[in-house]
Simulated assay, not measured.
Amino acid sequence: MPHRSNNPAEQFNAVEGLLTSWLKERRAVLARYTALVVAIDDAPASAQLARRQRELCELLVDYISAGHFEVFAELLNEAEVFGDNSDALVAGLMPDITDTTDVILAYEEKYGRGEHYPETLRRDLSALGELLESRFVLEDRLIAGLHNQHRRQLQAPAQAG
Rank of each mutant, 00 (worst) to 15 (best):
Arg141Glu: 14
His116Gly: 00
Ala73Ser: 09
Leu56Thr: 12
Gly92Asp: 07
Ser5His: 03
Gln155Ile: 14
Ile104Cys: 05
Leu142Gly: 05
Gly92Glu: 08
Glu133Asp: 15
Ala158Asp: 06
Gly114Tyr: 03
Ala79Ser: 15
Gly161Asp: 05
Ile104Arg: 10
Gly112Tyr: 00
Val38Ile: 13
Tyr63Cys: 03
Asn6Phe: 13
Asp84Lys: 10
Glu16Pro: 03
Gly145His: 07
Ala50Glu: 02
Arg113Trp: 07
Gly17Pro: 02
Ala79Gln: 13
Leu18Met: 12
Ala14Arg: 03
Ile104Asn: 01
Gln11Ala: 06
Gly92Ile: 04
Tyr33Ala: 04
Glu78Gly: 00
Gln159Val: 10
Ala106Arg: 08
Leu121Gln: 07
Leu132Ile: 13
Asp102Ile: 08
Ser134Cys: 09
Ala31Val: 15
Gln48Met: 06
Arg54Ser: 09
Arg113Pro: 00
Tyr111His: 06
Val61Asn: 01
Arg113Ser: 11
Trp22Lys: 04
His3Ser: 12
His147Thr: 01
Val38Tyr: 04
Thr20Phe: 06
Leu76Ile: 13
Ala73Val: 11
Ser5Glu: 04
Arg54Ala: 11
Asn148Leu: 09
Ala28Glu: 15
Arg26His: 11
Ala79Trp: 10
Leu105Cys: 06
Glu109Ile: 01
Ala79Lys: 13
Phe136Met: 08
Leu75Arg: 02
Phe72Pro: 02
Glu55Phe: 01
Ala158Ser: 07
Tyr63Glu: 00
Glu108Gln: 12
Gly114Cys: 01
Tyr111Pro: 02
Arg151Asp: 08
Ala91Pro: 02
Gly112Met: 00
Leu131Asp: 07
Ile64Tyr: 14
Lys110Ser: 05
Pro157Trp: 01
Glu108Leu: 02
Val37Asp: 10
